[in-house]
Computed example of a mutant assay.
Amino acid sequence: MDRLAGQIGGDPSRGRQYPLVDPFDQRSIDMGDGHVIYLEQSGNPQGVPVIVLHGGPGGGCSPFMRRFFDPAHFRVVLFDQRGCGRSRPHAEVENNTTRHLIHDIEVIRQELGIRRAILFGGSWGATLAVAYAEAHPFAVLGLVLRGVFLGRRQELDWFYGGGVARFFPDRWADFQRPIPEAERGDMIAAYHRRLFSGDRGQELRFALPWVMWENALAGLEISGPGHAPPDYARAFARLENHYFAHDCFLQEGQLLRDRPLIEHLPAVIVQGRYDMVCPPLTAWELAEGWDQAELRMVPASGHALSEPRIAAELVRVMDSWRDAPPFGRDD
């Protein structure tokens, strides 16, 4: 890590999100193994490619994600990962692993004729960005990451094993309440049994508290537990639980171990100082010793992409990469 950036906030004229633009391309790609992936492109068809990786797993992409990029300069590629959003089949976990998602990104890159692209991802999207870059380092121009999660057991234990519960005992009690006391020693496994019971009604009932536990802690301003549409909640909960029950289909510590494969790439990591979902330690560990990486710790901010300071900083990063690209021309 060459430095911890100290100019968060900066010029108030910068950091404003761009107006929403419509996609110039929308399509579905059949991956040939039962999954059909929704894909869209917006911005400049001849511009610098950016592949946006949404969180979750299971969160899906949204129009809001197009607004971080100057549409006159960037070619913005969004897609719904397997089992969520507009990809089909919905909430499906068969043939749905990190290896499959890396494969999908590579298929998308080749189908769109992209030689190299910027990877832009937060939370699980940051995990997937690092995993893909380590698998295909010469297909990547650079990485812009937010709220870093590396899929390690210590990170899962923090969120599902009682670590963050010390700060939010009321929310933790809500999350535990549907589970019998005898099963609360492993909340991921306890929810897994119910989210994959084969009883759709039961899966829907247990999906909501799973989703609400994360949503309640995602923003610095904690409000009520909110609500999520049942079908969205079921897909999100099943996919996230499926990945977490299998340690994100990564070897323990794999992404840090293999970081030398991508240390030639420029990276900016935008991290909320008070992120309770993915604490700043993980972002620090990823950036430490990576000379081409810059860690920007954002004050008074939590985890969510929609947090005002987080969103503004991400726009500033992409504007700076537009004005002074840290990578060479990609002919």
Rank of each mutant, 00 (worst) to 15 (best):
R184P: 10
G185F: 11
G185M: 09
D186Y: 08
D186G: 04
I188Q: 07
A190L: 06
A190H: 07
A190M: 10
Y191G: 00
Y191I: 00
Y191R: 05
H192N: 10
H192K: 10
H192R: 15
R193T: 11
R194E: 04
F196I: 05
S197N: 10
D199K: 10
D199Q: 12
D199T: 08
D199W: 07
R200Q: 13
G201Y: 04
G201H: 08
G201E: 15
G201C: 09
Q202Y: 00
Q202C: 13
Q202S: 13
L204R: 15
L204C: 12
R205W: 07
F206V: 09
F206N: 02
A207M: 02
P209D: 00
W210E: 00
V211G: 07
V211P: 03
V211M: 06
W213K: 00
E214A: 08
N215I: 08
N215V: 08
L217H: 01
L217C: 07
A218F: 10
A218V: 07
E221W: 12
G224R: 12
G224L: 10
G224V: 05
G224F: 10
G226Y: 12
G226H: 14
G226C: 12
G226T: 13
P229K: 04
P230S: 13
Y232L: 13
Y232R: 13
A233M: 05
R234Y: 03
R234Q: 14
R234I: 09
A235L: 12
A237R: 03
A237W: 06
A237N: 01
R238S: 09
L239F: 04
E240D: 15
Y243Q: 09
Y243W: 15
F244W: 15
F244S: 12
A245K: 10
D247N: 15
D247W: 12
C248H: 08
C248V: 09
C248W: 09
C248S: 13
F249Y: 10
Q251Y: 04
E252H: 02
Q254W: 01
Q254V: 03
L255T: 02
L256M: 04
L256V: 01
R257F: 05
D258Y: 11
D258K: 08
P260G: 02
P260A: 01
P260I: 06
P260C: 06
L261R: 15
L261Y: 08
L261H: 14
E263K: 11
E263S: 12
H264N: 12
L265K: 02
L265M: 04
L265I: 06
P266F: 04
A267Q: 01
I269Q: 00
I269D: 01
I269H: 01
V270M: 02
G272S: 04
R273H: 14
R273W: 08
R273C: 08
Y274V: 04
Y274L: 14
Y274I: 07
Y274K: 11
D275G: 00
M276Y: 11
M276E: 05
P280Q: 01
P280W: 08
L281R: 13
T282C: 06
A283G: 09
A283N: 03
E285M: 11
L286T: 02
L286G: 03
L286Q: 04
A287S: 14
A287E: 09
A287G: 09
E288M: 14
G289E: 09
G289W: 08
D291Y: 10
D291K: 14
Q292M: 12
Q292A: 15
A293M: 03
A293Q: 08
A293N: 02
A293C: 14
E294S: 06
E294T: 14
